[in-house]
């Protein structure tokens, strides 16, 4: 058995188990959660961690662990869809800008620059206020925020590809338009976009919980890490565990997806393969 190349795979080995765990937690919540996340047990309000309730119960006697597990569903779904919106929108804009160049490129990218300079959370909060608070709108608002980042990235990669000889060769044999983009440019864009998507996902989860924390995302009683932390804040003195479990879950999720992004970058970076 050969030695594991830690420099190349180390970060992936650390992050993948947590990522898999998260996806399992959201896919099989009903099997994994020991209790119904909505079940109110007035006999056990604000109970500390015990063998019956591993992470204690909240102010309405609901099991914190079960709610934390169910809350991963919202985070994962919002993350996936928001990243998909940002990735699709950004890739289309980025490739369009690089492909046509000139005035179109200039106009699109200046607009992206300006969108990029807004603080993300501010834009998300405003969009939520005008679109209305719902999980669907949260996905849309967060997705829009990611468009400029993906657009800049794909534009840069496309411009690099455009300077390559194989693209010239493809143009010479008469490939053009959609086929050129689909066959020659998109495969090259794929790698960097996946790396960006992992980091964007962690950021989407963070933004969703920030919105829910402020009461603009998932609405109670639906459990979300953000609104659980917010509830726990009010009972922090008597019951610190209410905000501890969802906080840890959120932190682990963001942390492991950040590392996953770094790990994928190491894997796709040809300089490290030597």
């Amino acid at each position: 058995m050969g030695r594991i190349n830690w420099r190349k795979y180390g970060l992936l080995i650390f992050s993948l188990p947590v990522v898999v765990l998260l996806f399992c937690a959201s896919a099989f919540s009903s099997f994994l959660a020991p209790y119904d996340p909505y079940y109110l047990d007035v006999m056990y309000m604000l109970e500390g961690p015990s063998s019956g309730h591993l992470f204690g119960t909240d102010e309405l006697g609901r099991d914190v662990l079960s709610r934390t597990i169910y809350a991963s569903q919202i985070s994962i779904v919002v993350g996936l869809i928001a990243v998909a919106i940002g990735m699709t929108g950004g890739t289309v804009i980025g490739i369009t800008a690089a492909y046509f160049g000139g005035l179109i490129d200039n106009l699109l990218m200046r607009l992206m620059d300006i969108l990029f300079s807004f603080p993300a959370i501010l834009l998300a909060v405003i969009l939520m206020a005008s679109l209305g608070t719902s999980i669907l709108n949260a996905m849309l608002a967060i997705g829009i925020i990611f468009i400029p980042g993906f657009a800049r990235l794909t534009r840069a990669v496309t411009q690099t590809v455009q300077r390559q000889q194989y693209l010239e060769a493809a143009i010479c044999i008469g490939v053009s338009g959609p086929r050129l983009i689909w066959r020659e440019i998109l495969p090259n864009v794929f790698g960097p976009v996946v790396v960006e998507a992992a980091v964007a996902f962690s950021y989407a989860v963070l933004l969703e919980s920030a919105l829910s924390f402020l009461g603009l995302g998932a609405q109670p009683p639906e459990p979300s890490w953000g609104n659980m932390i917010n509830t726990g804040r009010g009972f922090i003195e008597q019951a610190p565990w209410i905000s501890l479990a969802p906080g840890m879950a959120l932190f682990l999720c963001v942390f492991s997806f950040n590392i996953l992004g770094d790990g994928l970058r190491d894997l796709l970076d040809p300089k490290l393969n030597k």
Binding site: A210, F213, I229, G247, L250, F251, F255, N258
Partner: peptide, 15 residues
């Protein structure tokens, strides 16, 4: 640094 960058600021504030 990665740890710092991943902490949700509102949770850190609560802690």
């Amino acid at each position: 640094a990665t740890l710092f960058g991943s902490v949700p600021n509102f949770w850190l504030a609560t802690l």
